[in-house]
Design a protein around this nucleic acid. Structure first.
Lengths: 230, 230
DNA sequence: ATCATACTACGATGATAGCCGAAGTGTTGT
DNA sequence: ACAACACTTCGGCTATCATCGTAGTATGAT
């Protein structure tokens, strides 16, 4: 049992979007640099630095220095447990009549969420994959079948190798602007990375905004039959 | 998995002291009225009303109307689980160099925490009881022995009856201003209530501040050997 | 030694959200 | 019907805090 204001202090630290994004990005046990966390949070490095200092001070993060790099990771499993517990609560939250998500229309269309694609484009892709029967929905994950794996392997993603990773494979990740799931986990990250390699999607350095190129629109249409709205 | 800003939204709702106090007061499954929750939170009824509306909107609280009274309770066990998870994190937080707790010296001396006593007085009482051997400390609770139970029964608290309640009996409650445990649970609430009946402590209507009367200083000294600083 | 990169510190700015006073609506008791 | 009480709504105020630009320190590569 603990007096209320203690709870408020800890919750308020999590209750900032930039910090929440950082903590969530570290949920799978990875250690990320301050610059990576700044990108994940969508803020400048100096802002991220201040946030990280607060999280360290509160014993939510620990830092390891490697030369010029500072690697941050969660201080213990209880942090991840608290984030998970809050996630459950957050998913039971009320449908909002005002749209959630960023006000910037470009960010709503396509942006990064941690290291995978989010926004309208991401959700459209997922729904197409569901239509094609590549993916099915389980409780917290997507399941990919042989047809889907083959299609993505052909696209250049090493699906089998991804499954061997410690990281969750294909996570359903509730999208902030669409309120439906986009593809997270290792598969989601690999898909975004591959699209970047193909020149279909472009991420601007320092920003979480994602641009779909002309080649990307064509490629997504030809390869997966995905028609993106203008 | 859930996009970070969702987590931030839910956490931010918990991250306000008034709301955290309200949610915590409802942790044991009780339903409290809006006015009781306003008192618990230490804010006016109109402020509490706004907070309660937000918590309802977020599906953290449900309300039942009984005539003029609105009874609020937690919407489900996942809320309590999230509060508990955050509590664990909060207890691992860094010692702060600036003093925690309210700035008002009177509130630091003695105040209510939910329905039991908090502040310097409360912690002094607990430590005296530990010295006397009435209480011992366990993980999350205090244990009271026969000598302690007899002494409190003599003081007018029906210890045996309290043990039969559904509510936790004698909780260690981490005090916000003292950073040590004061006595929570049913026993803590009964002790405060008894001290009020005795005229030893006075709570002002609508405030969480507690006044130790002259009779209270004398009574605490004679009955339990507790010397309070001026 | 110089330059690039990673990270931190400082100060000013502006948005936000909690606060309460005033006032209103709804329910209960006399 | 009236008064008391429970609760909600509205508007103004203010403290807080996240933000970024500027500038600095530390590390690594050439």
């Amino acid at each position: 049992m603990i007096e209320g204001p203690y709870i408020a202090e800890a919750a308020a630290l999590i209750g900032d979007p930039a910090r929440a994004n950082m903590l969530s990005a570290l949920m799978d046990g990875r250690a990320l640099t301050a610059t990576e966390l700044a990108h994940v949070a969508g803020v400048t490095p100096q802002t991220a630095s201040g946030h990280l200092a607060k999280l360290r001070e509160a014993n939510m993060l620990v830092v390891e220095r490697q030369g010029r790099h500072r690697y941050f990771r969660l201080a213990g499993p209880e942090i991840a447990q608290a984030i998970e517990a809050i996630s459950v609560v957050a998913q039971h939250g009320a449908p909002r009549y005002r749209p959630t998500g960023p006000r910037d229309e470009a960010m709503r269309f396509a942006r990064t969420c941690y290291d995978h694609l989010a926004g309208q484009v991401a959700v459209t892709i997922v729904e197409r994959f569901l239509d094609l029967g590549y993916l099915t929905e389980a409780e917290e994950d997507f399941e990919i079948n042989d047809r889907g794996a083959a299609a993505l392997e052909e696209f250049g993603i090493e699906v089998t190798a991804l499954r061997g990773k410690r990281r969750a494979f294909a996570r359903r990740c509730l999208d902030w602007s669409e309120r439906r799931a986009h593809l997270g986990g290792a598969l989601g990250a690999a898909f975004l990375s591959r699209c970047e390699t193909q020149g279909w999607l472009q991420t601007k350095n320092g920003s979480r905004s994602v641009t779909v190129t002309t080649a990307g629109r064509a490629g997504l249409a030809e390869t997966f039959g995905i028609d993106l709205p203008q």
